[in-house]
Design a protein around this nucleic acid. Structure first.
Lengths: 143, 143
DNA sequence: CAAATTACTTCGTGCCACGAACAATCACAA
DNA sequence: TTGTGATTGTTCGTGGCACGAAGTAATTTG
């Protein structure tokens, strides 16, 4: 019968799968999901709290605690911005960069492995479509 | 330029996108993400706590509270299983079935809309590959 | 029948996210 | 220059989520 799953169902299940992988690898790196997400968003550049909260889709008040805990663990530091003394820039520490690098590598490997079984053409098509679907999604994870 | 995103990055961003949609629609139905997930898992059949925790990938101790709160909101009821008096079966109430139905429909609509812009062939291929990737993922969302 | 197993709960801990209310700073107009 | 209004970040209170360790009850196994 080879019942074909609908697109919605497939998307939700894929999300479920990736989310669990994300959490599992995070645990291995001693990072919560929220922390890993935040660190990933900071790999490119330091960001102010407002930009960071917009990127992550969180309220600013939620972010304060998240950064507090990450700072307390030495993953991140807060720095004042001389050009605008209201803003607090959040920057990865060496330890934070290290942790997120490890996390990123492991997650990438597992995800590549997930699609590795697909025939080359199918995989390429899939990846291309994927890219098309996520245009506009903030850079919560870079290559 | 048309920089092509890697598969891993695409998967993470797609997950991020779907997760946010999930949360947004959940909020509209007055459901948290965890609650919506649980109710979806129960649409097919009642499940015992152990089965449910396995399906959702949660510790049983986590599930107790989740069911507590859902039961308190009248979305779900606990029933004893006469054939094994240890097990507690969790079943949707009418209100719970209603809520999850609404949630499911809205989410499905939004997700279908997400892929609706793709050319027919590409969409079909994508959906098929999706189905291939999620074989073995528990039925956290059905068609 | 005793021991091991299974199903579920309780308890304590920590994390996460929200909204409302607040202080500091900045931008701009009168 | 001095308001006035917007923006930035924080605090506080509330509720929800998830875990592991420890405990109880029922079932299975030897």
């Amino acid at each position: 019968m080879k019942e074909t799953l609908g697109a919605a169902s497939g998307l939700v299940r894929l999300t479920f799968l990736v989310q669990n992988l994300y959490a599992e690898i995070g645990r291995g790196c001693d990072l919560t999901v929220a922390q890993a997400q935040m660190l990933c968003a900071l790999t490119e550049d330091s960001l102010g709290m407002a930009d960071l909260s917009a990127t992550l889709g969180l309220e600013r008040s939620s972010l304060t605690g998240l950064v507090d805990r990450a700072e307390h663990r030495g993953l991140v530091v807060r720095e004042g911005d001389p050009s605008d003394r209201r803003v607090v820039k959040v920057t990865l520490t060496a330890a934070g960069a290290d942790a997120v690098h490890k996390f990123h590598d492991q997650l990438t490997e597992r995800l590549e492995k997930l699609v590795a079984d697909l025939p080359a053409t199918e995989r390429e098509r899939f990846t291309r479509t994927l890219g098309r679907l996520v245009t506009g999604v903030p850079a919560v994870f870079a290559d």
